[in-house]
């Protein structure tokens, strides 16, 4: 999953640094993720994982690092399985 996230991030995150140079827990905002790019990233994740982010997860923290994104995506997929 994290590889796929990295792929989407490198296409849509418009980061000034290479995604490969970031650790899974690196802060993406410090790395230069802008608010506009973060929306593009969310759209890319929705499309890539066939999910929709509920409003309560649409905040900075959910997208603050590759780890955080993975946890957010997993949480959505898990709730979907239960439902």
């Amino acid at each position: 999953m994290k590889d796929k996230i990295r792929d989407i991030l490198s296409r849509l995150g418009k980061l000034p640094v290479a995604v490969d140079s970031l650790a899974d827990d690196s802060d993406l905002y410090t790395a230069g993720l802008s608010s506009f790019a973060s929306v593009q990233l969310m759209l890319g994740l929705e499309d890539g994982f066939d999910i929709e982010f509920p409003d309560n997860l649409l905040n900075r923290r959910s997208f603050a690092s590759i780890d955080a994104i993975a946890a957010t995506v997993e949480q959505i997929i898990a709730t979907r399985k239960v439902a």
């Binding site: 980061l15 000034p16 905002y29 410090t30 790395a31 230069g32 993720l33 802008s34 608010s35």
Partner: peptide
């Protein structure tokens, strides 16, 4: 910016 190498939004 937070330091001389920081991204514009940092």
């Amino acid at each position: 910016r937070a330091h001389k190498d920081a991204a514009p939004s940092d």
